[in-house]
Simulated scan of single mutants.
Amino acid sequence: MTAKKEINPFMKQVLELGPPIAFFFIYLRLRDDSFLIGGTEYSGFIVATLLFVPLMLAAMGVLWYLTGKLSRIQVFTAIMVIFFGGLTAWFNDERFFKMKTTLVYGFFAIMLGIGLLQRKSYLAYILDEMLPMRHEGWMILTRRLCGCFAFLAVANEFVWRTMSTDLWVKIETFGFPIALMVFLMLQFSLLQSYMDDPDHQ
């Protein structure tokens, strides 16, 4: 089994956030262009999507090399990006890549919901070592995060179906991640009373 290795936090952020930000700037550069590839004309959005996939895989490869591991969430997200990026190129239809975000958030909401029905917190299985918290706190956080993911899935459907591609790319790259980050920071602040105190074990 590969040992987990430490990595500079800044480098970790670059590897995780770099590919989506790169996609954003590549899209801005190519959005008004079209490309003839193999006799088929592709929009700038689709070409940006095809460039994003290897960028993301390269970043994940470097992250795995430096840390010795990848989270299940990272692996699942990579599979979804590859699958829907492939569908986008194969059918020459940008809607597949836009739907990917809905399905990723929806999958997370469903998995957390299944755990709640079993009176379990799957979040605790993943994050308990990093964030010691009593069972009650994990259940509260799981319920709230399940609702958050469900909301983001519905929001993505609304955005890509009713708004321009330009606006969707901006919200996908910055809006949804920032909203999720703020939500999590707020929850951890509100759930301080459920945190385990290592000095009182």
Rank of each mutant, 00 (worst) to 15 (best):
residue 1 M to A: 07
residue 1 M to P: 03
residue 2 T to C: 00
residue 5 K to S: 06
residue 5 K to N: 09
residue 11 M to P: 00
residue 11 M to K: 14
residue 13 Q to C: 10
residue 13 Q to T: 12
residue 14 V to Q: 00
residue 14 V to F: 10
residue 14 V to T: 06
residue 15 L to M: 02
residue 16 E to A: 13
residue 17 L to N: 07
residue 17 L to I: 06
residue 19 P to H: 05
residue 19 P to V: 05
residue 20 P to M: 06
residue 21 I to G: 05
residue 21 I to S: 11
residue 22 A to V: 11
residue 22 A to R: 00
residue 24 F to D: 06
residue 24 F to L: 14
residue 25 F to L: 09
residue 25 F to H: 05
residue 26 I to Q: 02
residue 26 I to F: 05
residue 32 D to K: 14
residue 32 D to S: 15
residue 32 D to L: 09
residue 36 L to F: 13
residue 37 I to F: 08
residue 38 G to S: 10
residue 39 G to A: 10
residue 40 T to M: 11
residue 42 Y to T: 09
residue 44 G to H: 05
residue 45 F to R: 02
residue 45 F to M: 11
residue 45 F to V: 08
residue 46 I to Y: 04
residue 46 I to H: 02
residue 48 A to T: 07
residue 49 T to I: 15
residue 51 L to K: 12
residue 51 L to I: 14
residue 51 L to A: 11
residue 52 F to E: 01
residue 53 V to Y: 03
residue 54 P to H: 09
residue 54 P to N: 13
residue 56 M to T: 09
residue 57 L to C: 10
residue 61 G to M: 08
residue 65 Y to M: 12
residue 66 L to Y: 09
residue 66 L to E: 14
residue 67 T to Q: 11
residue 68 G to K: 00
residue 68 G to W: 00
residue 71 S to I: 01
residue 71 S to H: 11
residue 71 S to D: 10
residue 72 R to I: 10
residue 72 R to V: 10
residue 74 Q to N: 07
residue 74 Q to C: 01
residue 75 V to H: 04
residue 75 V to P: 04
residue 76 F to W: 12
residue 82 I to W: 02
residue 83 F to A: 15
residue 84 F to A: 08
residue 84 F to V: 09
residue 85 G to V: 12
residue 86 G to N: 12
residue 87 L to N: 08
residue 91 F to P: 05
residue 91 F to L: 13
residue 92 N to I: 04
residue 93 D to H: 07
residue 95 R to D: 12
residue 96 F to M: 12
residue 97 F to L: 06
residue 100 K to H: 08
residue 101 T to L: 00
residue 101 T to E: 00
residue 109 A to D: 02
residue 110 I to K: 03
residue 111 M to N: 11
residue 111 M to Y: 12
residue 114 I to H: 05
residue 114 I to V: 15
residue 117 L to C: 09
residue 117 L to K: 15
residue 120 K to H: 12
residue 125 Y to V: 07
residue 128 D to A: 12
residue 128 D to M: 01
residue 129 E to I: 01
residue 129 E to W: 00
residue 132 P to C: 07
residue 133 M to Q: 02
residue 135 H to C: 02
residue 139 M to D: 06
residue 140 I to C: 05
residue 144 R to M: 04
residue 145 L to V: 11
residue 146 C to Y: 02
residue 147 G to A: 07
residue 151 F to S: 06
residue 152 L to W: 00
residue 153 A to C: 00
residue 154 V to F: 09
residue 154 V to K: 07
residue 155 A to D: 01
residue 158 F to W: 14
residue 158 F to K: 03
residue 158 F to Q: 07
residue 160 W to E: 05
residue 161 R to N: 14
residue 161 R to F: 08
residue 161 R to T: 13
residue 162 T to H: 13
residue 164 S to H: 09
residue 164 S to M: 08
residue 164 S to L: 11
residue 166 D to P: 03
residue 166 D to R: 07
residue 172 E to D: 14
residue 173 T to W: 08
residue 174 F to T: 06
residue 175 G to V: 01
residue 176 F to P: 02
residue 177 P to Q: 07
residue 179 A to C: 11
residue 181 M to C: 13
residue 183 F to Y: 11
residue 185 M to I: 13
residue 186 L to F: 11
residue 186 L to N: 06
residue 188 F to W: 02
residue 189 S to G: 14
residue 190 L to Y: 06
residue 191 L to K: 04
residue 192 Q to T: 08
residue 193 S to A: 07
residue 193 S to F: 09
residue 194 Y to A: 04
residue 198 P to E: 08
residue 200 H to C: 03
residue 201 Q to K: 15
residue 201 Q to M: 14
